[in-house]
């Protein structure tokens, strides 16, 4: 009794919720503040002696440059195309993997994840070498080579979230639909598809933004012929053009924000769980 009393009298007593303090401090220092600094750089210029002043230079230089707008449009197009192709291939695969008639154990799923453990730069290099061996290279088919590389790299990221949604499908509902006379196409259209929508959304989110911002894949496979948004930010960075690079990162952040809002609209809180179930 006395001991417990003396404990509460101590100046600092440990509470379990204090455990989140280092975590939050780390996130504030290295997530919030950097983003804030990006915003500062995006709307300022700097004089010779390093003093910052407010300006829209980066803003105007982005929106008046046809090449940059062109790059944005091309990146959005490549991102969308890649998302669609990955979904078209990944959805049936995930559906089959989750179907207990076809696949009874998890080994096949592991086989789909396994390539992800080999360094992705190495895999991209290998893809390029194999493609150029087959006669498709950045010189003659830059878009084809890049798209193959993108799909190859992002397919596992599509299959996993879809698979984790599909194994949770309400099987009795599907059976009920077919018992009530729906043919298999209608069961799929009105039952499987709506139920797996959250998986589709989170798969698209895992493919779309990374494709836009990917640097290595487009740079390697198109041999520098295709510049995506990620490449141009990288370029600005390596030439120390902080303000313009920051503004483009800001544009990217807006895109990220939009995709965040879209995915929030579709499911609440579950998404993170699905991402966490890679293992």
């Amino acid at each position: 009794m006395a001991r417990a009393y003396s404990k509460t009298k101590r100046f600092f007593s440990f509470k379990r919720k204090y455990l989140c303090i280092p975590y939050s401090v780390f996130l504030i220092l290295f997530v919030i503040i950097p983003i804030f600094i990006i915003l500062v750089y995006a709307f300022t210029g700097s004089t010779e002696d390093g003093a910052l002043y407010f300006s829209f230079d980066a803003f105007t230089s982005f929106f008046t440059s046809p090449t940059k707008i062109n790059i944005l449009v091309v990146s959005l197009f490549v991102g969308m195309l890649n998302t669609i192709i990955c979904l078209l291939i990944g959805y049936p695969v995930a559906y089959l993997l989750a179907n207990s008639k076809v696949n009874k154990n998890k080994i096949l799923v592991l086989l789909f994840i396994m390539p992800m453990w080999i360094n992705f730069v190495l895999r991209t290099g290998a893809t390029r070498d194999v493609l150029s061996w087959m006669g498709i290279n950045g010189g003659n088919h830059p878009y084809l080579a890049t798209m193959i590389g993108m799909v190859y790299n992002y397919l596992p990221f599509t299959i996993l979230p879809l698979y984790t949604t599909m194994i949770k499908l309400d099987k009795s509902q599907l059976e009920a639909a077919s018992d009530l006379g729906a043919n298999s196409f209608n069961v799929f259209l009105h039952n499987t598809l709506p139920q797996s929508l959250p998986g589709i959304v989170s798969a698209s989110e895992m493919v779309f933004m990374p494709t836009l911002s990917s640097y290595v894949i487009s740079d390697t496979l198109s041999e520098g012929k295709i510049t995506l948004f990620g490449n141009i930010i990288y370029l600005n960075f390596s030439q120390s053009q902080w303000n313009e690079g920051s503004f483009m990162a800001f544009v990217m952040l807006i895109l990220v924000g939009i995709s965040m809002l879209v995915s929030r609209h579709f499911d609440r809180g579950e998404q993170s769980e699905r991402r966490g179930t890679l293992w």
């Binding site: 290295f30 997530v31 919030i32 503040i33 950097p34 983003i35 600094i37 990006i38 750089y41 989110e205 933004m209 990374p210 836009l212 911002s213 640097y215 948004f229 990620g230 930010i233 990288y234 960075f237 902080w242 690079g245 920051s246 990162a249 990217m252 952040l253 895109l255 990220v256 995709s259 965040m260 995915s263 993170s272 991402r275």
Partner: peptide, 17 residues
């Protein structure tokens, strides 16, 4: 934020900081 953020933006923002 870091989960949905593009990797290049994370990298860029950290570097700028």
């Amino acid at each position: 934020i870091p989960v949905v953020n593009a990797e290049i933006v994370i990298a860029m923002s950290l570097t700028v900081m």
